[in-house]
Amino acid sequence: MITVEKLHKTIKKRKILCDISFSITKGECVGLLGPNGAGKTTLIKCITGILQHEQGEITFNSAPIMQHKKNIGYLSQHTDFKSWMTCEESLLFFGKLSGVDDEALRENISVVLEEVGLKDKENYKVEQLSGGMKQRLGIAQAILHQPLLLILDEPVSALDPIGRNEVKKLIARLKKRTTIIISTHILDDASEFCDRYIIIKNGMIVGNINDEFQKSDRKRILVKIENSPQAKETLSNTDFEKIEIVSYNTYLLTGVEELELKTVVNDFAQKEINTISIEFYEKGLEEIFLEMVSDT
């Protein structure tokens, strides 16, 4: 659906994006993750056509993205509207700019306000809305013209827990029918919706992981044994991807196969190494993210 190839962007002689390439297929929900200043917003602004890139190509269904602006819905990081407009007037304004004809627009506004839970607030001025309501109105303007691709830049980061919950429920509903790119640094939120994560650091992609990969990668076992010099030797003869010593008698094993584990426990028993506990441990998205963006 959308392909970004070898994208480069420099602002004030500073390289913001460097050789960014990825593609997103129809129906996917992709999380764009990265620390502050990684280049997420700049990448989004290039995709939406707000910024021009120097090198590379962004295509939407094989055509340049600029020809498909009508098919993109966008919610920016800082959501505010003309405070004197009502919710309905705001949506009328954006709908007209999107090229939706008047009759369809009136109908769409009613449907969209219902969907974001602002139906009874259509005549409220924007200045009367809470932060969560404004964000939902922001999403309403993004889906008003029924876009094929929805881009949400930090949709919940500025909201209180109630507002966050409202917006998260809304995104979960939208995910069922639209391709979504969510930029965020709140990883728990991303893990609730996303099928895939593109991790950016210093303007470069350092990770492109899907949910399945992440699930398999995060299976780990914490094995606690009585201190024995033979334990380390026994473990080093196994096929575990990674063996880490947590403390003098505790080992963290990554890439665990159940059969492998049984063999290890049996080996320990044969060598009279007493196993104190076996604890299954899952590596979270946050840990994966930190590993990828850490400088060490």
């Binding site: 602004k45 939406t48 056509g49 707000i50 602006k69 009508k70 993109i72 966008y74 920016s76 990081q77 800082h78 959501t79 505010d80 509207f81 003309k82 954006f94 700019l97 999107s98 090229g99 303007q141």
Partner: peptide, 14 residues
């Protein structure tokens, strides 16, 4: 620009 309106406008076919 400061309110984000500019981004909302320019992501449309404007």
């Amino acid at each position: 620009r400061n309110s984000g309106m500019q981004d909302f406008i320019l992501t449309r076919p404007v």
